[in-house]
Each structure stands twice: as structure tokens, then as C-alpha cells.
């Protein structure tokens, strides 16, 4: 396997008394698309969100274990959470444009990190809107409110906004599930392009999407890692009976 972006070691998450992830240990390869699949409620989203320390935002949640990124455990006490979240971006299931203009949405992250010069911001905004495939549609109305965009455009705006802080890893939580087929396709092709420079981990409940996009597949069932491997192997020759049953559509 090529270089590893994230080493997940004995990761557990519990909401109150209910443990939703058990002892997950897996390596996420760099600059590849890894898809997390599994029936709903198996902990896919929780796993994804625990990779950028967003899972802990829910009151009463406990996370233990390690996620090693760039040689350091993101759960170590001395880790800056904001730094982790800057370097490991999260794209949510539904787009949430910030209550400001299209331009300011993309510039929000860079501004947090102290970039003030107009010319620099202009360049970032254009580059990331292009990377998200939105530039041509919005270049004449950059200062219009972001909420005026269609939901598909909003999701691409959120992608551009996430890219603007220059993360190394992109976590995508069922990012096409709220979109129409055409918008979903646009996002998919963007992500396939972005994989050249970014490590992408995506949660999906659409198996066809995972087949189309994933290089590696991680199958979760009831909070446990059942099977992990290159997409071709998992889809064509699953080793575990539960993976076979899931892929055959015996449960969702």
C-alpha cells in the first residue's frame, strides 16, 4: 500500500452508555478515495466525524483510541482542535452556506487564518470556485447572498469553502444524498479530480456510487470494522459472509 494519511488505532465512540464504534483499527491511504459503507445506523458518519474531531460536539459523547495524522495523535491532549479541523476538512450531507455572500463564504476560512489582502483573497476565491466547478455560474454575482444559489450550487460552494483552507484530507458525509442526479454527478466528478491532491474519505449508502468512485472500501456493521481492502477485492471477492450479504442486498 502507498503512503498512509490516517492511521486509526483502536478507536471507540460512545454516546452515553451506547457504544457506536468498537475498536476500529485501519490505515487510510493518501491521495485515494476510501469509501465507508454499511447499513444505516452502523456508525459510518460517526467514524467520519471522529476523524476531524467533530464527533465530540454532541453532548455526552466519549471518544477513545488514536487517530494518527502526520505523525501525531489528533486526540492527544496537546493537539489544537482548530488545527486538526483546518487540515482535515469535512463536507456535510446538506449544504450550509454561511449567512454572507458567495465570495465571503469562500474567503471565510482564509480570513480566519489572517489573510486580509484583497488580491490574495480574490485569487483564492477564484481558484477554489473553479476547483469546485462553480466559477462560471457565479463569477458575475460573487457578492450576492450565498443562500440564493440552488442546493446543488450551494453544495459546490461548500466544497470550495472547504478547499479554501487548504486541507490535506477531505471527509465527505453522503455529500450527494440531498442533490438532484445532475448536481450529484458534478460533485462526484469534482471529487475524482481532487483525489490527485487530497486524501478523500467518503461515507455513502449508495453502493453504486462507492463502486464508481472508491479505491478502497471499508465495510462497517454495528459499529465494527468487518472488512477493508481495495475496492475491486471487496466488491468482487468479499471475504466476510456479512459483507457478501450486505452487497447482495440482504440488509440495508
Amino acid at each position: 500500500m502507498e503512503d498512509t494519511a490516517l492511521q486509526i488505532r483502536g478507536l471507540n465512540v460512545a454516546y452515553g452508555d451506547q457504544q457506536v464504534l468498537r475498536d476500529i483499527t485501519v490505515d487510510i491511504p493518501a491521495r485515494q478515495i476510501t469509501a465507508i459503507i454499511g447499513p444505516s445506523g452502523c456508525g459510518k458518519t460517526t467514524l467520519l466525524r471522529s476523524l476531524c474531531r467533530m464527533a465530540e460536539l454532541v453532548e455526552g459523547v466519549r471518544v477513545w483510541g488514536q487517530v494518527i495524522f502526520d505523525g501525531k495523535d489528533i486526540y492527544a491532549p496537546q493537539t489544537e482542535v482548530t488545527e486538526v479541523r483546518k487540515r482535515i476538512g469535512l463536507l456535510a450531507q446538506r449544504p450550509f452556506p454561511l449567512p454572507m455572500s458567495i465570495y465571503d463564504n469562500v474567503a471565510y476560512g482564509p480570513r480566519l487564518y489572517g489573510i486580509r489582502q484583497r488580491a490574495v483573497l480574490d485569487e483564492i476565491v477564484e481558484r477554489q470556485l473553479r476547483a469546485a466547478g462553480l466559477w462560471d455560474e457565479v463569477k458575475d454575482r460573487l457578492h450576492a447572498p450565498a443562500s440564493a444559489l440552488s442546493i446543488g450550487q450551494q453544495q459546490r460552494l461548500c466544497l470550495a469553502r472547504g478547499l479554501a483552507v487548504e486541507p490535506e484530507v477531505l471527509l465527505c458525509d453522503e455529500v450527494t444524498s440531498a442533490l438532484d442526479p445532475l448536481s450529484a454527478q458534478r460533485i462526484e466528478s469534482r471529487l475524482l479530480e481532487l483525489k490527485a491532491n487530497y486524501t478523500i474519505v467518503m461515507v455513502t449508502h449508495v453502493l453504486r456510487q462507492a463502486r464508481r468512485m472508491a479505491d478502497y472500501v471499508l465495510f462497517l456493521y454495528l459499529g465494527e470494522l468487518v472488512e477493508y481492502g481495495p475496492a475491486g477485492e471487496v466488491f468482487n471477492n468479499p471475504r466476510q459472509a456479512r459483507t457478501r450479504a450486505y452487497l447482495a442486498g440482504e440488509f440495508y
Binding site: C52, F96, L98, P99, L112, G162, V165
Partner: peptide
Amino acid sequence: GLREAALALGATRWQMVKGV
């Protein structure tokens, strides 16, 4: 979701409250 969008970009809590 709006709070999380800001936090996911690395905003501190106060930056998130104030700006978003």
C-alpha cells in the same frame, strides 16, 4: 449545521459565534 460548517473550517468557538 451552520455552527458545524464554521467549526469544520477550524474556527474557534468564539469566531463561530461572532462571525456566523
